[in-house]
């Protein structure tokens, strides 16, 4: 099942690559230009994923395809949203507070007790701030 999805997505991706690289110059005589490699890469992905599509369709119809893995989708999505928010809000608000809130949410989502999460996130965000901000002179906000 996974292979089917993967081959389909990479076919779409390779077509996109091909179209996007069509505007790039081809090169002079046998010396390849900027467009040569992108087109080569795109066509290779296309060829390989078509092969994969055929193989996985074969398996699909012979009913030997492995089912999609089961797991905790809610937790993963919540963690992903938390990280995304943190990344998007970078530069706004306060670094320490943002970091603390992100880490605390991850703790809660992944099943920590609230007081453990509180302590863990506080220690971690302060040490990251001190180490990166003061020792490595990273530009925080």
């Amino acid at each position: 099942m996974g292979d089917l999805v993967f081959s389909f997505v990479s076919i779409v991706y390779s077509i996109y690559l091909f179209v996007a690289s069509s505007k790039l110059p081809e090169g002079i005589a046998t010396i390849p230009g900027p467009g040569f490699f992108p087109r080569l890469v795109a066509s290779t992905i296309l060829a390989l994923s078509c092969l994969l599509l055929i193989f996985s369709l074969w398996k699909f119809f012979k009913k030997t395809t492995t089912p999609f893995p089961k797991g905790r989708w809610t937790q993963v999505s919540l963690v992903l949203i938390t990280i995304l928010l943190y990344v998007l809000l970078w530069g706004r608000g306060n670094f320490l507070l943002n970091t603390f809130l992100m880490l605390f949410s991850i703790h809660i989502v992944t099943g920590s007790k609230w007081y453990m999460g509180l302590i863990g996130s506080a220690i971690l965000s302060i040490s990251v701030f001190l180490l990166f901000g003061n020792v490595f002179h990273v530009l925080f906000f």
């Binding site: 880490l103 992944t110 863990g120 990166f132």
Partner: peptide, 16 residues
Amino acid sequence: LPQSFIWSTIIILSLV
């Protein structure tokens, strides 16, 4: 350490 601690540490270190 408990898993949540490991996970949150890796995430923040990866980002920063």
